[in-house]
């Protein structure tokens, strides 16, 4: 799968029309249209009928648009969602490879039937059970469509009988396992640091940034944002830090000079740090990610510009 930048995934309930219609204005890398949590059959039918139009709204700012179906109603929800503009689905409560294989099969069928190129629709696998955490390797490798995976921490709490509590992170092991197995499969882990995974807050921008940054430093590549207030903070936190760019460039320059002199262990002046292959590689990876993030921002800015000129 092509390398992608998806630092913020803004979650929007399909039935909340105001949120859907303004979802493209928040500069999210991705928007997830949520079909879950709808009680009545009438509302569910109405929600499904609104997905096609919702995709059009959500992608106006250049965001990758996903739909979050109900696990038990996956086929009907996905059938209502596969239209041009859709990037993929978020599969909730994945527990085994069979779950993903089934979703893959539905998507393949709909791609063929609706004139969408084969294999382009992606899957974000959300895990909300101990079984899912244990089987994460088979889940993330079950289909080449799986692009990201993360914990649905609130549902995991419910399924494990845990009462969310700010002072104690019950998912240290689960998050570590998701990060390691997901990255080992060359898939992007998504998540945020404790306690925001179980007790999200929306009013303190700096704290949102810190939680996202800590999530990044646990190995996550982005997060699901339950509120637009998280988007800008996640976009910044999950990108390489701007104030380190000069350090990364200097690291690369010093190392390259050292190699030319016949050494691959180069002291960084004014510090006790030694630059060797992994330190140089880390600088390269960060500079490349910075470029990718900048390209993503430019892509979204262009889409917004186009929207504004159309509206004008």
């Amino acid at each position: 799968m092509k390398v992608f930048v998806r630092r913020s995934h803004l979650l929007v309930p399909v039935l909340d029309r105001e949120k859907v219609e303004t979802s493209w204005t928040h500069n999210a890398d991705s928007v997830i249209l949520d079909l879950t949590g709808i009680e009545s059959e009438d509302d569910r039918s109405r929600a499904r009928s609104l997905v096609k139009e919702s995709i059009r709204h959500a992608c106006r700012g250049g965001a990758d648009v996903f739909v979050l179906p109900n696990k038990a109603l996956a086929r009907a929800d996905i059938e209502a969602s596969v239209y041009p503009g859709l990037k993929g689905i978020v599969y909730p409560g994945a527990e085994t490879s069979a779950d993903i294989e089934e979703a893959d099969s539905i998507l393949s069928e709909l791609e063929t039937g609706r004139g969408i190129a084969s294999g382009v629709l992606q899957i974000i696998a959300l895990i909300d059970s101990g079984t899912g955490v244990w089987n994460i390797r088979e889940i993330v490798t079950a289909s080449p469509r799986v692009c990201s995976s993360g914990l649905d921490e609130l549902n995991l709490c419910r399924n494990m009988g845990i009462i969310p509590y700010a002072d104690f992170d019950p998912f240290v092991y689960a998050k570590g396992r998701i990060v390691v197995e997901t990255r080992a499969a060359k898939v992007q882990p998504i998540g945020i640091s404790h306690p925001y995974g179980v007790l999200p807050q929306f009013d303190d921008a700096d704290e949102i940034y810190q939680q996202a940054l800590r999530g990044k430093n646990l190995g996550f590549a982005g997060a699901i944002c339950p509120d637009p207030s998280w988007v800008a903070q996640c976009n910044t936190a999950f990108a390489p830090p701007a104030d380190r760019l000069e350090f990364f460039r200097e690291t690369r320059r010093l190392f390259s000079e050292g190699v030319a002199r016949g050494t691959a262990a180069v002291p960084y002046p004014g510090t006790t740090m030694m630059i060797d292959v992994p330190v140089d590689e880390n600088a390269r990876v960060n500079l490349e990610l910075w470029e990718l993030c900048a390209a993503r921002e430019a892509e979204k800015a262009k889409a917004i510009e186009k929207q504004e000129s159309t509206m004008a």
Binding site: G219, P278, E281, N282, V285
Partner: peptide
Amino acid sequence: YDMSMDMGIEMFV
């Protein structure tokens, strides 16, 4: 360092 790079993290945080 190599592990940090593969995990996409900054060390010493």
